[in-house]
Nucleic acid binder design. Structure first.
Lengths: 149, 149
DNA sequence: CTTGACCTTGCAGTTGGCTGCAAGGTTTAG
DNA sequence: CTAAACCTTGCAGCCAACTGCAAGGTCAAG
């Protein structure tokens, strides 16, 4: 009755990650140690597949591996992680709102600055501070320009 | 007629960075090597102060140190960096728009998911994948949740 | 002369989530 | 039997922009 088993590469392919990533999650306490064949190969079952999918789904929702580990721990202790999931996601939502507001404010500043820059002729000089307008308008802020789309 | 000079600590304090950061910028080719006293202490003038302020201002606008170095190079070659500044900032603005759109789309998804979660009772089970709803709705996305505000 | 605040260099560590590599053992197809 | 395609471990490196530390030299005040 016990379903299919998988080598680490099959498991990884099924979820779209690399074997190293699976080992990394194990090291980080997100997956629990796998069963082994006599020769030492890791063997996974469908429950492991589901756990791995959960990890990726939770990551896609913006949870960090540390937060996901916390949820996994709760679950392993038999306590329902649902309340904690809600709290974490609500917190993410608030952080998201703050971030969006911040980026919009910054966008306004940057586009105002660009409008002024476009209205100016190029400076022919190579002044020590390169571009004076930037000095006068760049304020306060430390934007967080994370890449990745 | 040559104005004030500064030790690295004074310079750093004047701009709100640490001496290590100033040395780091020098190593990275953003500041050019400073004059030295006989005993080897770095000595800066007001032009250096302005250059350092420029670096921080440009960072505040979202430019990376690599991009700022490029501007500094242009300036040192006597070519006006203004056109490049405009191009870089326009690019930042576009990236910002993409990012804001992405975060808003993600915000919508997350808040819909939360609404569904709030409507559900806690699962008492500690199922292998922790929380089934999350599995069903978490898609595709890889949000970039940079911290810092 | 001593204390303490400065400065110097070089190099390791931080963050988060992987990714790569080397050196070896195993399994499977032909 | 061999070659390819797996697997194992351990550990270094990546990104950016710093930050910290150790071990030592310098300088001004009292």
């Amino acid at each position: 009755m016990s379903g299919r088993t998988f080598y680490i590469g099959e498991l990884a392919r099924a979820v779209g990650v690399k074997p190293q990533t699976v080992r990394y999650y194990e090291r980080e306490g997100l997956l629990g140690r796998a069963a082994r064949t006599r020769s030492g190969y890791r063997l996974y079952d469908e429950a492991a597949l589901m756990r791995l999918r959960f990890i990726r789904a939770a990551q896609a929702l913006g949870l960090s591996l540390a937060e996901i580990r916390e949820l996994v721990m709760l679950s392993r202790e038999g306590r329902s992680p649902c309340a904690r999931v809600r709290a974490l996601l609500r917190e993410k939502l608030r952080a998201l709102d703050r971030k969006i507001a911040e980026l919009r404010a910054f966008r306004r500043e940057l586009s105002a600055l660009l409008a002024q820059l476009d209205a100016m002729p190029d400076q022919a000089d190579s002044s020590p501070y390169v571009c004076s307008l930037i000095m006068t308008l760049a304020g306060h802020h430390r934007p967080d320009h994370g890449k990745e789309g």
